[in-house]
Simulated scan of single mutants.
Amino acid sequence: METSSELAREVPIVSARYARMLIRFLEKRGVRCQSLLAKTGIAGSTLENPDAWLSMNQTIEILRQTDWLMTDERAAFEFGQQLDLPSHGLLGFAVLGQQHPRRLVGMIVQYLRVGLPLMDMELESSGSTFRIKLVDTWGVGDLQPCLSKIYMGSIHRISCQVCSHFRFQFNFPSALPVDEWQLLAPGCDFEFNAAETEVTMPLKEAPAPNRNDNLQFLMARTQHQRVRGRPSANETLAQVRDLIMSQPGRPCTTENIARRLDISARTLRQHLASANTSFRALRNEIRENFATLYLQDTNVPLESIADKLGFSDQAGFTKAYRSWTGKTPGEVRRDHRE
């Protein structure tokens, strides 16, 4: 009799577009598509279907063949670097990243946690520095190095416009010297045989020269507030948004957020009231945005989305989403695919 864990591995959860991109990447390196799919049981017609989804078991088989066929241990990281915002279906976040660099990292992590659920990610921030740790929740075993490099390569590609000096740490060895890895990510640090697989990356001190007046104003305002040393209500509002977006689930409460900001819950409520909002309103706004993104751009089951967003069950999620939008999650998903 199959266990619930075994059944979960057969549920279609990963968009086939990732497999298509991986095949194109390997074909440029002389690997034939037939060789990659030989032992996976996946038909080429499935990958040609723009709406196709793969199960965890199918994805693992593709990655196993990929890991065996790759001759350069850096190739997985390099493939990850090709997974930019449009590749993940996140082109709309490019504008967000230009105008609100602090929010980009949190939103991307939250989306990938559900949209590409091969590994989980834990996001922490301290000041202007972010730390993302990868967590193997599926027990992928010997494929963990391959997956970790893909994720880290993509995180580097997505975040390099707003973050600087990446420090990559991997909990497995490498036969290559560090300078060989730095050819893929100049100016970055690489460490192997570390205790955890994680990346640390601070926001850039100044925006890239893209003539974006909104971004210049944002950075100037942030610098002014840092010099004054007295956080305003608007600054607290931005910090609260960042923290909610990094983890909108059950641990996201007024008390927990206040503790992370080193203020009392009462002071937090006063700051948010001064900014004409509340913790509940902020959290619901972010939950609604994430929920709509997942419903339209992923095939993740509703109960999984509900759990990730902090609801105790699917019914509670459906009731809340209908109160926000006037539609049920199922209606939004069906309407988007018609």
Rank of each mutant, 00 (worst) to 15 (best):
S4N: 12
S4R: 14
R9C: 05
I13A: 06
I13M: 13
A16D: 06
R20T: 15
L22Y: 04
I23A: 03
I23M: 00
R24S: 15
E27G: 09
G30S: 13
V31A: 06
V31D: 03
C33I: 09
Q34E: 15
L36I: 10
T40C: 12
G41V: 06
N49A: 09
P50Y: 01
W53Q: 05
W53G: 01
Q58D: 01
T59R: 01
L63W: 03
L63S: 00
W68T: 12
M70A: 06
A75I: 11
A76Q: 12
V95Q: 11
G97I: 07
H100A: 07
P101A: 04
P101V: 06
V105M: 07
Y111S: 07
L116G: 01
L116A: 08
L118K: 00
M121P: 01
E122N: 11
L123W: 03
S125V: 13
I132Q: 01
K133V: 11
G139K: 04
G141F: 05
G141R: 08
D142S: 13
Q144K: 15
P145G: 02
L147D: 01
M152T: 03
H156W: 12
H156Y: 15
R157F: 03
S159W: 12
S159A: 14
S159V: 06
C163E: 00
C163P: 00
H165Q: 13
F170D: 00
F170N: 00
F172K: 08
A175S: 09
P177I: 02
D179G: 03
D179A: 09
E180K: 08
E180M: 05
W181D: 02
A185M: 02
F190C: 04
F190I: 06
A194T: 05
A195N: 06
E196W: 00
E198A: 11
P209D: 12
L218D: 14
Q223V: 09
Q225M: 06
R226P: 02
G229Y: 04
S232E: 06
T236F: 14
T236C: 08
A238C: 11
G249R: 00
P251H: 07
P251S: 03
P251F: 13
P251D: 01
T253F: 08
I257K: 08
A258I: 15
A258F: 08
S264T: 15
S264I: 15
S264K: 14
S264Y: 14
A265Y: 04
T267R: 14
R269A: 15
Q270K: 10
H271C: 12
F279Q: 11
A281Y: 02
R283S: 08
E285I: 07
R287F: 05
E288P: 00
A291F: 03
T292R: 09
Y294G: 02
L295Y: 06
L295S: 05
T298C: 02
T298V: 03
P301E: 04
E303C: 04
I305L: 07
I305A: 05
D307I: 10
A315K: 11
F317C: 04
A320L: 12
K327T: 11
K327H: 14
T328M: 10
E331Y: 07
V332M: 11
R333S: 04
